[in-house]
Simulated scan of single mutants.
Amino acid sequence: MKESLWNSIVSVRKNAPLVHNITNYVVMNTTANALLAVGASPVMAHAHPEIEDMVSICGSLVINIGTLDEYWAESMLKAAKKAQETGKPWVLDPVGVGATSYRDEAAAQLLQYKPNIIRGNASEIMALAKLNKQKTKGVDSTHASTEAIEAAKWLSDSIGSVVCVSGATDIIISGERQVLLHNGHELMQRVTGLGCTATALIGAFIASSEDKLIATAGAMALLAISGELAQKISLGPGSLQVNLLDKLYTITEEEFYNSLKTETVSYAV
């Protein structure tokens, strides 16, 4: 498992995939820099006239509904449709789903185009699977990631997606396969957009690997370990953001292996 996860990191560095992001404008700069740091090439494009052309030339598509509006929602649907038609892998980040009916409707429409990966916090995954009867607390999770395993399994089985539930323990599920990651640091919660960054990195990794579960786990492990290592030399969230970006760029195989805390793939979810 460790070797497979590290190889997914090396693959991104080697292949430098072009990742098309339709994401929220709060995190565009953060996610673009993170993609560059891991060796990928980001493009942020949501103009209707170029959506289909951009999807056609990219290695993968990332859709994040964080700052949703009517124009961007149409861009997302156009992009997801084109990705499905062309077989381009794509990842959905259903930010804040469950909080408003508008977000629920947008997410439901996007799910029709079968995202290869769905990544969200526990509340978002539970809401997406229609198992959560309460409103979500903005974009923050009100549930532990382990509470969303049933919902994640249902989504994976019904849509055919790899589902990643992020939290203190990151849980990645695909059918009967499951990976748990126990890295990261609580200070990462004080930096805006790191969940969105995780989604963007997943986009780079799925463009460079056939095994989408391993690619997703590799991206999540890289971000969590980099945050964990960066925290050790950071004074607070400001310096963490800078040090995390540097660590995404400089992390070594030895650092990765020595830091990784993962449970083996399980076939009994």
Rank of each mutant, 00 (worst) to 15 (best):
M1V: 05
K2G: 14
E3Q: 12
E3S: 12
S11W: 05
N15I: 08
P17V: 02
V19N: 08
N21Y: 03
I22D: 12
T23R: 00
N24T: 00
Y25T: 10
Y25L: 13
N29A: 11
N33P: 12
A34V: 00
G39F: 03
S41T: 07
V43T: 11
V43A: 12
H46T: 09
H48Q: 13
P49M: 05
E50I: 02
S56F: 03
T67F: 04
D69R: 01
D69W: 03
Y71L: 13
W72F: 14
E74A: 08
M76W: 02
L77K: 07
L77F: 08
K78R: 09
A80V: 00
K82L: 08
E85L: 09
V91M: 08
V91C: 12
P94Q: 03
A99E: 15
A99D: 13
L111D: 10
Y113A: 02
P115T: 01
S123L: 03
A127H: 04
K133Y: 12
K135T: 10
K137P: 14
G138N: 06
S141N: 04
A144G: 15
T146I: 13
E147I: 01
E150Y: 07
A151L: 05
A152Y: 01
W154L: 15
D157K: 04
I159N: 08
V162W: 06
C164Y: 03
V165G: 06
V165K: 00
T169V: 12
I171R: 01
I171A: 05
I171Q: 07
I173D: 13
E176Q: 14
L180M: 14
N183F: 03
N183W: 02
G184K: 00
G184H: 01
H185G: 11
M188E: 13
R190H: 15
V191G: 10
T192W: 06
T197C: 14
A198F: 05
T199I: 06
I202R: 00
F205D: 11
F205G: 02
A207Q: 04
A207F: 01
S209W: 04
S209V: 05
S209H: 09
S209T: 08
G218Y: 00
A219L: 06
L222Q: 12
L235P: 15
G236F: 04
S239C: 09
L240D: 11
N243C: 08
N243Q: 09
N243P: 11
K247V: 06
L248W: 00
T252R: 05
N258Y: 10
L260R: 00
K261H: 09
E263V: 11
Y267V: 12
V269C: 15
